[in-house]
């Protein structure tokens, strides 16, 4: 299928601002789906509320746009009730890890075969630029006019600690790499978390002297490094990209099949 066949162009233009990283992330995601040769009728995309959560409206899969923070709970019901479906869950940083934090850790713990894509722009964009649990200290936001002092979650450590069997981080500057990471995340059997560093020039960049979208992409280039690279070893301040964990562990729906067998045998 051609890439544009995955898109519902009748609902364009999209809502994302100029320079927003989410369109680039969607591009990488659709190319990953194309690479895997998936039938759009076998894919369900479930989202919560926020800028990134508008993604499902624009893609021609089965799409479910739910409540703030609850996407993974809805998605768990969808996957458990029809395990043959491929379930993709794009979420914002506040959506996934503030209001949705409990659902996030429990989805990791179950190791249910869902791909969670955390589009991390370190800000609540849709509501106008409040800080999120991924903003970290020293960030100016509408609810932190004197700068934040809240520590940030490390999404990778949180996901792995909670039981996700696949965890990776990419950025919208490193698009080809991101696409490859998404291919691996979607093909992985088990709960996959992929954090995508995605710039928000409108609300984060503007308030934090990070400039426009081009300058924010340059920032991603300068401040990230591949996991295990020399640059990462030499400078621990750099944000690492790559696969943090890729384990084979019992998948939740497959485990339920065993329970079904056991119950049938009485």
């Amino acid at each position: 299928m051609a890439l544009q066949d995955y898109i519902r162009s009748r609902f364009f233009p999209h809502i994302w601002c100029v320079g927003c990283g989410h369109g680039t992330a969607l591009n990488a995601l659709l190319r990953a789906v194309e690479t895997l040769g998936l039938d759009p009728s076998d894919i369900v995309m479930v989202s919560g509320i926020g800028c990134s959560s508008r993604m499902p409206g624009y893609v021609d899969f089965h799409t479910l746009h739910t409540l703030h923070g609850r996407a993974l709970a809805f998605a768990t019901g969808t996957k458990m009730s029809k395990p043959e479906l491929t379930v993709l869950v794009p979420m914002g940083d506040g959506d996934a890890l503030a209001i949705g934090g409990n659902h996030f850790i429990h989805a990791c713990r179950r190791n249910i075969d869902i791909t969670a894509i955390v589009l991390n722009n370190r800000i609540y964009g849709m509501t106008g630029g409040q800080f999120s649990p991924l903003s970290g200290p020293g960030v100016v936001a509408t609810t932190a006019p004197y700068s934040t002092y809240d520590p940030a979650f490390d999404v990778m450590r949180l996901a792995v600690g909670a039981g996700a069997s696949f965890a990776a981080r990419g950025s919208t500057y490193h698009v080809v790499e991101l696409q490859q990471l998404l291919v691996k995340a979607i093909s992985h059997k088990g709960f996959s978390v992929i954090e995508v560093l995605s710039p928000c020039p409108t609300h984060f960049g503007r308030r934090n002297q990070q400039g426009d979208s081009v300058e924010m992409l340059e920032w991603l280039k300068a401040n990230t490094a591949k996991l295990g690279s020399k640059a990462a070893e030499e400078n621990p301040e750099l944000i690492t990209r790559g696969i943090f964990v890729e384990d084979e562990r019992p998948e939740y729906c497959e485990q339920y099949e065993r329970i079904l067998e056991q119950a049938r045998e009485g």
């Binding site: 479910l64 609850r70 709970a73 809805f74 768990t76 019901g77 969808t78 029809k82 429990h106």
Partner: peptide, 20 residues
């Protein structure tokens, strides 16, 4: 399915209702 709270429980059954 036993979920992590009641919010998730209702969310999960909605997700399952949509698969038929």
């Amino acid at each position: 399915l036993q979920m992590e709270d009641e919010i998730a429980s209702l969310a999960a059954i909605i997700g399952a209702s949509l698969t038929g």
